[in-house]
Design a protein around this nucleic acid. Sequence first.
RNA 1: GUCCCCAUCGUCUAGCCCGGUCCAGGACACCGGCCUUUCACGCCGGCGACAGGGGUUCGAAUCCCCUUGGGGACGCCA
Length: 468
Amino acid sequence: MDTIITRFPPSPTGYLHIGGARTALFNWLYTRKTGGKFVLRIEDTDQARSTKESVDAIFESLEWLGIDWDEGPFFQTRRYDIYKEYIQKLVDSGHAYYCNCTSEEVDAMREEARAAGKKPMYNGKCRDKNLTPGPGMVVRIKAPRTGSTVVEDVVKGNTSFPNSELDDFIIQRSDGSPMYNLAVVVDDLTMGINTIIRGDDHLVNTPKQILLYKALGAELPLFAHVPMVLGSDKARLSKRHGAMSVSEYRDMGYLPDAMLNYLVRLGWSFGDQEFFTRKDLIEKFSLDHIGKSPSMFDMDKLTALNAKHIQAATPKELAVMLIPFLEKQGIAVAQGPALELAIETLQPRSKTLVEMAQSAVFYFKEEVELEEKAAKKFLKKATLPTLELTAGYMEALDEFTQENLEDALKKVMEEAELKFGKIAQPLRVALTGTTVSPGIFEMILALGKNKTIHRIKKAMDYVESLPE
RNA sequence: GUCCCCAUCGUCUAGCCCGGUCCAGGACACCGGCCUUUCACGCCGGCGACAGGGGUUCGAAUCCCCUUGGGGACGCCA
């Protein structure tokens, strides 16, 4: 095969959800890996349900994930002339026919088939009537009734479908618009798509599409049907399983790279490797390690992976992503060393950007809010001398470094005759208001001399105000 | 109902194609411990699976069949 050309064809009837994102990712990775082309196509022929908002939401999510496309976006609704042309070809060559059966009639046929223990389908009433076009008529494909169609699939292997299960499905609605199977095949054909990676809910559609390819005298693309992503109860992923859309995960503070990493591992593996950078994935992805069975979405694992990606990212990269989350916490900070230093201290203790933003608040607030329990336990009258000593030694330092801070606190320990733990906790509460924070020294370094001393003094004021 | 797909720890999976190295490996979660200035990180250890039944074979997680279970499709949706 020459250049690999894949596509991602969402229908804009909602947000980009997890399953769709994974499909997009597989296609994208495969083309990036092979140096192929990735086409984005919007399947909006369902005029009733397609919306502009959905289209925008899909673009936005793809961009956030860093999945870019080489061609498109193409909109099916702008390609009706092309479909018409192909439908005409099919009619002319005797592969399709006009049908004037009403929906009610067809429903009755389906009912009848079901009652007879068969698959519900159209019975071919107009198949040989040679009807000519007219208002209210649909075009149906003339499907073979005997034999079988084999789908050759890279992940599923060969699957044979009896043609008796195929009905004369509609390729053009009575309003002249094309139906899914027709539009897909015509698009894939005219766009040169030679590799189709999609959810395995489409596997049963494939014989229909193969029929169309053959009727059009076209060469078949390579099929790879990827198992679906299920919810935690093994049912198809839906709203009741919690967050579905990619944008929700962005808002919960997941990194796009972590998302990609998690999604790709849902169905694909590379030995025992769990952590992948984007570059890794492009290098290592292949179609041969895609599993055959469906998988369940597990937020815990996503979260764990997110923590790893946060640790692996540079403070600078994180700063850009973190700023909007800080704003939600009411903190306005510019990018720069202060922010990056703070981020560095929080990297090993943040699983999401939301968490990181929450724990970063104390760095940037003007005044520390003392947590009641923490203050009660660690900021007592007896703490005053220690705080005073600490402030004194720190003020004497020209600038803060890990080393001279350690020296300063060592002196405090000696003079106060206290162990490190005894002076560290009160100091921590004074500086952060809570008992939980990054390591004392790295925190002080990130906070800076002014804020540090100011906060110690504030804490001293607080202690002094305490009743005897 | 009919057709199609799938089946290894609770979950994601390695191994399966090319049977022996697997009394089944890794990761998440969970439990214990270590490290330690708090919380984390990290490190060490534990718990925990070849759905069931038949074959084939000297030998099966690996090959075949059946059963069961799960999923998908059956639209003038995509």
